[in-house]
Amino acid sequence: MSDKTFQFEILTLQRPLPRQTVRFVVAPGQEGVFEILPDHAPFVFALRPGALRIHTPDGKDSNVAVGSGFLVVQKARTTVLARSAERPEEIDVKRARQAKERAEERLQSRASEIDVARAKAALQRALARLEVAGYFRGKK
C-alpha cells in the first residue's frame, strides 16, 4: 500500500472531533459502504447512520459511530458533517441496546400509527453504536 495520506475531520453541532492524518476511511453511504483513499476526486456523499472506519498511518483502525449527514471530499481535506459522532468509549451500550429493542418492537408491531421511517432510522443509529462499541464482536 502506498504511504500517501490525507487530512480527515469529523464535525458535529456539539463539537468538532480532532483532525487526523489518515490513510483511508471506510464510510457508510446512503447508497452503500464506500472507501475514500488519498487523491480522491471532489465528492459529496450522503451518509446513513453507521460505523465509520478510520485507518491511520500507524496501521491502526479506529471506529466512530456517525449519525446521518454527509461526507465531503475536498482537495485539502475530507470532512464528515454528521448529526452525531461518537467514539467507542463514549457509547452507552445499555442505552443503545434498549433503543434497538424499542425500535424493533415498534417495527414489528405493524401498528398504523408508528412512524416507520423514524423507527428505522432509530434502529440504524442503535445498530451503528452497538457495532462501534464492539457489542457484536463477542457474539459472532
Binding site: 453541532l13 446512503q30 471532489p42 465528492f43 459529496v44 450522503a46 449527514g69
Partner: peptide, 22 residues
C-alpha cells in the same frame, strides 16, 4: 468547487437542508 454527488444533488438537498435548519 466542482463536486460529484452521490446521490444526485437534488436528493442530497433532502439531507442537507434539514441539517441546515437544525
Amino acid at each position: 468547487a466542482l463536486y460529484q454527488f452521490e446521490p444526485a444533488a437534488e436528493l442530497l438537498l433532502d439531507v442537507l437542508l434539514p441539517q441546515y435548519v437544525e
